[in-house]
Design a protein around this nucleic acid. Structure first.
Lengths: 345, 345
DNA sequence: AAGTCCTTTGGGAGCGCTCCCAGACGTGAT
DNA sequence: ATCACGTCTGGGAGCGCTCCCAAAGGACTT
């Protein structure tokens, strides 16, 4: 308790100014890298800052400047279940990396229910952050449009549909799926089945489209009996593969739109006495821990999660910058995926 | 751009006061739930707030009050690798849940290198947050002591040693391990081996201790040939189990201090022609996705991650509260684990 | 020598709150 | 009627910045 009297004793900009023998405005200019400061003055101020250990007070800055130097990363609970595993840590890591050089803060907000959503909406509407990164893939999520309507800079992780209006960063789901299936075809497989995600999700549509593109490119016939709809869960994968096996017992490869579904697929294949990859080759999507630790290890399509996080942050920062300068910027980005080949195919 | 003129048009406390026909101070009192406001006045103010859609400006509040209404969740990169998977999302979810009713903000900070650590240290030293949640298990991490020295309220996730001084929230690693091994013994296993984590980590020491306690309680002899040191990686698990098999080919159960190591163990056991669980029963720790999707699904010790997150937040908030009131509070908490039984044992 | 323009600088005003003091009013005791 | 004391209220001061205007000075031009 003795030392705590020191609280608030942190030097202020004013003290730095006094110490350096200049005015407040000048110190402010140096800190914010404004032009029109002579080298001599700048050096003196910088030295004063260093000697006093000055750190600007964010609250004061935010209040005076009307900006917050903070962005929010918003994760609706619903997404949390579907994409759990490597997804968030990857995105978060990327975002954080990109923000490290800035002095933007990252605010994490989980939204579990409508009440929390409203609370967040109000919070954002009150301009308590400079921008929002939103993990959202559900078409019926009202948040993106809300952000749009209050002109809050925002970037989505993933698209809600093919003609997404809000700036987004996504990975090439179609291309990734196509590559995966082409890989299977290249290994001599001819009866390639797929287990899709729920088809009301755009990401699931894309991955199915990639599957179809690959078949078409290879001149293989598309057989609807080789397509089963899953739900991104292991049990869904099980169910789908049972269905596939009953319809086309001769299938020799399965492309699953997620690793977790591939785990379910793998179990059913084993139960049915089929060996992986000898009898049926298996490929997943996500390159999650599940894929790495499966037996045999699962070939999977890797999304560049960290890079996606970085991109999201970058796009958002640009957007904030542009908005401030009165420009309009609505760029999005689609990043390539990578096929990670393992023993399952 | 037309509408953006509205920016900053959000009502201020002053406007609320005018609207309600009271003074600024009164509105402030109502907002902060201070006593000494007549019911009539309070109602009038609350109505004004509702009608105007007033939301307090955090920056202004922080500046005037000298507090920030924000806490930081700090994750050193090193931990990110080891504990990746369910750990962070669980903790984060818990923390976020607990904070939802507060108007505390959650700031996420990843620390990748010494430079970022220093930056964060400076940031914290400047009292830009009210408290810190620190995921840290490495004894040589300087951050906890730094926080201690500047009297910043802090709570660790996990202990660095048995006599941790900084308040922490941990799960009962020893008890969890003991329960797991007792479970194996209860299923008739007699040559129970263990794969430990790196023994310079307290968490690994605890889990080993739990293993020993279980053997002793059951009156089984401890054989050092049944203990192999791993490193929480799959490859480490592989290596450890190969070692164990060469030393005690008759082992009939393995308790691994992490699921990922159990995945490695499982692979080696299969290679050696042993069936799980018929020949060798297997138990892991963490109850991660890997455990659920393993073949056979892995029995594992579940940590109550979300509850741990909640506890951390609660303990930190209490600490902040107490500190503000001039009291001293240093409570910690150890939460029970739960054995999740699956087919591997 | 006077005027013009640019660069550099100091410091007032104000951001929206909280804190706190002083005043207004009511109640009961003297 | 007077005073003391309590409850409730208004609003000044100030938190530490940024913004911006005006002033000081230097380098040119006419």
């Amino acid at each position: 308790m003795t030392v705590s009297g020191r609280r608030g004793q942190r030097p202020t900009l004013e003290q730095v100014a006094a110490y350096a023998g200049v005015g407040r405005g000048t110190v402010s200019r140096v800190i914010n890298g404004a032009a029109n400061v002579s080298d001599q003055t700048r050096t003196a101020v910088q030295q004063a800052i260093a000697e006093l250990g000055y750190v600007p007070n964010r609250a004061a800055r935010a209040l005076a400047a009307g900006s917050t130097d903070a962005i929010a990363l918003v994760i609706p609970e619903a997404e949390t279940r579907l994409f759990a595993e490597p997804y968030f840590s990857g995105i978060i890591r990327g975002v954080s990396t990109e923000l490290a050089d800035t002095d933007m803060q990252l605010l994490l907000t989980l939204i579990r229910n409508p009440k929390e959503r409203d609370r967040f909406a109000q919070y954002v509407a009150a301009h308590r952050v400079d921008g929002v990164l939103l993990v959202s893939v559900h078409a019926d999520d009202p948040l993106p449009d809300l952000l749009e309507s209050i002109e809050m800079p925002a970037v989505l992780s993933g698209r809600r549909s093919g003609d997404e209006l809000v700036p987004y960063v996504d990975c090439d789901n179609t291309g990734g799926a196509q590559t995966a299936v082409e890989h299977l075809i290249g290994r001599g497989r001819r009866a390639v089945a797929t287990v899709t995600g729920p088809l009301d999700m755009y990401v699931a549509q894309c991955r199915l489209q990639g599957y179809r593109d690959a078949l078409r490119t290879a001149g293989l016939e598309e057989d609807e009996r080789l397509v089963a709809v899953g739900d991104f869960t292991e049990e869904g994968g099980r169910r789908a593969v049972r269905e596939l096996l009953s319809r086309r017992p001769d299938l020799d490869a399965v492309f699953c739109a997620s690793d977790v579904m591939a785990a379910g697929a793998r179990a059913v294949l084993r139960e049915s006495g089929r060996r992986v990859p000898e009898d049926v080759a298996l490929v997943g999507f996500d390159d999650s821990a599940v894929a790495r630790h499966m037996d045999p290890p699962l070939t999977s399509v890797r999304q560049p999660l960290e890079e996606m996080g970085r991109s999201m942050a970058r796009v958002l920062l640009e957007q904030i910058e542009d908005r401030k300068a009165g420009r309009e910027d609505r760029s999005s980005r689609v990043l390539p995926t990578e096929l990670v080949r393992r023993a399952s195919s």
